[in-house]
Design a protein around this nucleic acid. Sequence first.
RNA 1: GCCCCCGUAGCUCAACUGGACAGAGCGAAAGACUUCUAAUCUUUAGGUUGUGGGUUCGAGUCCCGCCGGGGGUACCA
Length: 557
Amino acid sequence: MQITETLARLVAEALESVQTSGALPAAGDVAIKIERPKLAEHGDFSTSLPLVLARTMRMAPIQIAEAISGAVPEHEMVGKVEHAAPGFVNFTLSTAWLQSQVDVVRKVGGAFGSVEVGSGKNVQVEFVSVNPTGPLHVGHARGAVIGSSLANVLEAAGYDVQREYYVNDAGNQMRVFYDTLYSRYMQAAGHDVPLPDPAYPGEYLQELAADLLNDLGDNAVSKDRADATAELAPEGLKRTLADIRRVLELLGVTYDQWFYEGELFRTGRFEQVLELLEDSELIVERDGAKWFAATKLGLEEDIVVIRSGGGGPTYFGTDIAYHHQKFFERKFDRVINVWGADHHGHVARMNALMQAFGIDPDRLRIIINQIVNFKDDGESVKFSKRNNVMVTIEELLDEVGADACRFIFLSRSPESHMEFDLGLAKSQSSENPVYYVQYAHARMCSIVRVADERKIGFDSADLSLLIHERELDLIRRLIELPAVVERSAERLEPHHLPHFAMDLAKSLQRFYESCRVVSSEPEELEISRARLQLVDAARVVLGRTLGLMGMTAPERM
RNA sequence: GCCCCCGUAGCUCAACUGGACAGAGCGAAAGACUUCUAAUCUUUAGGUUGUGGGUUCGAGUCCCGCCGGGGGUACCA
């Protein structure tokens, strides 16, 4: 059970007992919120319940606070209960209990921080899902990092998680991609075939076409356009996807499932779902096209799902089948899509779609991450696939490194319009907070190594020796991780992790500064052992935090 | 025009969904290494949370109006 839950229970008991005794009047049901005060003098946890109750009880909040704080039952976790103006009840954790947590952390080990809010529900996190028409560029990195860390956090929170990349292999953009590939292939073979319009004019397709000519030979040259394209397309797709996958892995991003849009057509699901909606008259025909009747569900306009003139399904059209499949065939309890801000217009449509399916809209959550504004030494850089000005994720990783990249993207909440200064990230990489955090981890590992070299075993230790302010501060920090995981999972906000990591690293460095761990003085052996256990616990917690962020936890730097 | 997101220290960002004196990092100023890693630590300066109202015991957080920035508003994705 989380600390706050225990405290809330104690407060509830206290409230009940003073109401039973008649010291306080009845007040109906109230939610008891336990929070963390900003100031140390206000204790470790607090509740403003008296302020909330003041009105209905028609009493001064401070009196209520006094009554409640005086009635809080004894508990091993709680050292001190105080009331404070204007109407707070403040809790200070007991020193003995804090000391005991070092052992708890070490026993739980790498699983420390896991919570059970997910209770075995299965959730899918779909992220990146960029059309495989070329290499990923820097703009895609943010969603990749957010999605992958969120998946880690949800897993730690007890969810059964599936990470998915939705491969748009069937749409318009792919046709353009294949048409361009054909032209480039013919050009590479020495034929003057102009680029289609529209086309993907970038270098990437020239290189890919040259590779295909080299590896597959020139068989396709003599075929007509359709046959040749049909021959080149699967290999072009395969190689582009393989490259995307490779670069994502460099960034520390992996998937459980690569789901192909084409699958929705091959299995007939697209047709089925459309028929289903036609039956409930949510698909209508007009102007030669098929429309999703979103106006019947409160939206301002209907949405085309199949274009007129045999134009095929739209992006939204296949999304209908795709999401139906997620909920009804694969039966996910929850689905989370991480999208860039350029797709935010679709959110309302997706909610309407959930309505059409008769699914609780809360089961689908769409995280919109805002566009990243890239700068280079203060100068704004605009990227675009069309005008061919872009930096690939791979180039970014060459310059900045995956860990630093992840940390930077992760520390901003998704809705912030973040700045990413490439020049700064490169030139000041040693001042980057990411190294501060990793260094703290390496330092703790180093201490354990030294203890090992000097043959100082610390399997057993007297933890009651840990009474230094910095030691207790560090323990307080360590045991925050479960709450951080819980909050990040419940609110789908992985950005709390790097901030916690910074705070933890700070506590570690401060402890290191004030408390000598491995001592050569014989009379300090016992305190050394106790501190070694603390260092070991801290190493575990920081390592886990880095792991959740998808970063490495170096043992030396 | 309409819809969504944002505006917090010089810069980059937090603030536990309405709580107590708004916090970190970087940058700036001043200090600290004979021991386990100085990629460190200790101080100091820096704020009318864009702005004007409102709700509340209490507002960076909720509501309304302005100002500024970004994104969307296709039979593109």
